[in-house]
């Protein structure tokens, strides 16, 4: 179980630099590790969400060649928050999961922008939100919906859940 989770995180973290560019629509590519983090957080609680976010964020930081720790920090926070939401709300319904994914992507974008501002990131807030964060949040929601649907079908065919 832990091995499969580790493999999933590794694959999800590295998928961002290999698979995600192939899935881009125009200039917008989905944030696959973030989708994974949020879904894991919602399903398995704040600890798993936080650690998963940290792991995939760190992989992304290293793979993308940015500030190591920036995405690890924001994704760990998002995973934690997703886990807290999962503890307090009924989030089994995809109608909750998908908007949650969109909102958490926006939150992660805001958090990352704020953090990078501390490190003198030059881009303007409006541009980043309009051209990067918002389209990516929508795309993540769409892709997350497809993923949740696929998992629901898969779970229906299996007695044990992949997540539990």
């Amino acid at each position: 179980m832990r091995v499969s989770l580790a493999l999933m995180l590794l694959g999800g973290g590295l998928a961002q630099t290999s698979v995600a560019p192939a899935l881009r629509i125009g200039a917008v590519a989905p944030d696959i590790p973030l989708i994974l983090t949020v879904l894991l957080g919602l399903k398995r609680g704040p600890e798993v969400g936080c650690l998963s976010g940290f792991a995939v964020g760190l992989l992304q930081d290293v793979a993308a060649g940015g500030f190591v720790g920036a995405q690890a920090l924001t994704k760990a926070l998002v995973g934690f928050v997703a886990g807290l939401i999962g503890e307090r709300l009924l989030v089994g319904n995809p109608l909750v999961q998908v908007p949650g994914l969109v909102l958490l992507t926006l939150a992660e974008g805001l958090g990352r922008y704020w953090l990078l501002q501390l490190l003198h990131f030059p881009a303007a807030f409006g541009e980043v939100m309009l051209h990067v964060v918002l389209p990516q949040a929508l795309y993540n929601g769409f892709l997350g919906a497809a993923g949740v649907l696929a998992l629901s079908v898969l779970e229906a065919h299996r007695s044990g859940s992949l997540w539990r």
Partner: peptide, 27 residues
């Protein structure tokens, strides 16, 4: 425990960031 995990993770991340920015790269 979950809060401990969060704080640890955040600290490690900040440590990475700090090391990276001081070294002028990913460190």
């Amino acid at each position: 425990r979950k809060y401990a995990v969060l704080v640890s993770v955040l600290l490690i991340s900040l440590l990475f960031l700090s090391l990276g920015t001081r070294g002028g790269g990913t460190g």
